[in-house]
Amino acid sequence: MNGEIELSQVTDQLNSGILLLDLQLNIVSWNRFLAVHVNQKLEDVKGKLIFDVFPELPQRWFERKVASVIQLGTPTYCSWEQRHHLFELPHTRPITTDSHFMAQNCSFLPYEQEGKLVGICVLIEDVTDVCHYQSQLKETMKQLELANRIDGLTRIYNRKYWEEALGKEFARAQRYTSELSLIMFDLDHFKKLNDNYGHQCGDLVLIETASRVSSLLRDADVFGRYGGEEFGIVLPQTDQIGALEVAERVRAAISNSPIIFEGKKISFSASVGLATLNSEHKRYEDLISETDSALYRAKSSGRDQICILQKFNKCS
């Protein structure tokens, strides 16, 4: 090989696009990758304004982006993670991806001759594969994360996630001194129900309970399965009176209509404990144990009722 190497022989074999623009954004040159993907010959686009060849480019954005290269002499970048693509180019795996166009990482680099900025070099990298696998991974992670917080049977939050959410709401309520109430309820005589009709029936009651209660709640409320037949509802921005209304609706929704299992009507009910955040609650666990004590009192006072320990100090 002699000293004069024609670099275009190499750049023409690159699997990335190289586009050279002058400072007025006219096309000076490009490599074969672009010629092939745009399906135009260099002679036909040479000297043309980039926006005439690529009308899909957001013109104002592009000009501002390039301005930083021209004015500061520094490179600037555009990643597929923020903009899937700039140039509408076809990609080589049309079947397995959901986008029409090649995902791209673009770099805008200052192009200098004799120490003076004379143009901008745009590098266009095909990252369709990366993009494809990344979105698959994201989807899987999302499902995993969901599976991590959901109770398999009732499809409401599991205890771990529910308690974390309570912890966050507790901290937030303390920080902003806002209201926060907690309801916990337990299905009455659930063991008997399981013994008499079998576990399938018990499961059905749990599912039905979760579904009936879910439909009563606001988006901000956090409903979870605390243990076997015990459930918890975190009610942000809710005072005792508001929480009592919710508790009554929950109680009624459970006991008002039976479920049908193997042709038999099966009635069930729940005992409900309620507590509202006050200055004596130092940790969220304190709120749970007060609610739990209220729940215990509701049980011992005859079940299918709501109990609050503080203020009213009575069951309704």
Partner: peptide, 20 residues
């Protein structure tokens, strides 16, 4: 950065200014 609202996302803005 002198962009119009909605012209680019917060993520893009952060990346742009950082790179500069």
């Amino acid at each position: 950065l002198g962009y119009e609202p909605d012209e680019l996302s917060v993520e893009e803005q952060l990346i742009d200014i950082s790179s500069i």
